[in-house]
Amino acid sequence: MAAYILRRLVTAALILLGVSFITFVLLYVLPADPVRQIAGRSATPETVESIRRQLGLDQPLVVQYGNYLWNLLQGDLGRSYLQKTEVATLITARLPATLLLMVAAIFCELVIGLTLGVIAALYRGRALDNVLMLSSFVTVSAPQFVVALLLLYVFSVQLGWFPIGGYGTFSHLVLPAVTLGILGSGWYARIMRSSMLDVLRADFIRTARAKGLGRGRIILGHAIPNAILPVIAMIGIDIGMFMSGIVVVESVFGWPGIGQLAWQAIQRVDIPIIMGVTLISALAIVIGNLIADLISPLIDPRIKLH
């Protein structure tokens, strides 16, 4: 077990190395010039060049990347070009908000998605199944800001149940989490439905019926624990999709997480922040997958980690 985790962490380090390299190259070839952003429009060419030298951006790509990695190894993510603050400080300040939103959103996704998936499977081929699958299709394909604004309009503006935006209390958390939950639930509903349909056909369900168990016991005790296995692997993958959705949702709801930080940094070509957020996101995905893989054997005794 310890060997397994250690091996996975080594893989994780390699993944992060790859991610950092690709992101670095992409930012380097970007036509936007961060120095111009810092210096402003009226700066003289000399000022621009001196800032460029100061930031080390005049050096070749390999040297820049090498320096970045060297600092990274020492735990230094660099300083923001514009705010002059440590990137690590900026991210740590905002990470709790994003993690909170992520946990709440995944909880919403699972509750909505799994419930709808199970119901659709039990009503397979009937009207309810069709309605649920159509709605899951809509949620999967709906743009994030549409759902976010719709919920804001109905529950904050019209009904006044929740604040329009911000951070701090539970009621601030509800709408952004539900928005992300609705958006992500469609995938889970579909996977859970097809997984349930497979399991309901399985021989051991027939055995459970032959034992004389009631329908509820069969579904809760036998069908769902088996059907949920592919969903767990999905959660790890989902964190990646989640990271892309969070930028929009945090902006709409004014949620002070790293999505907002990334959004502002991208607009200003603040490369150290973009790099930092990308690496943290990649790390989150890697850890999410690792956790999903560690949970699986607890539910499915056939899975052995080695």
């Binding site: 051991f204 032959a210 088996n226």
Partner: peptide
């Protein structure tokens, strides 16, 4: 079912719940 009439099936490999 299971009390007064019970049944054994052909496929022992799949007739038991794998996660229980």
């Amino acid at each position: 079912r299971g009390a007064r009439i019970s049944m054994i099936f052909q496929e022992p490999m799949t007739a038991l719940n794998p996660v229980m």
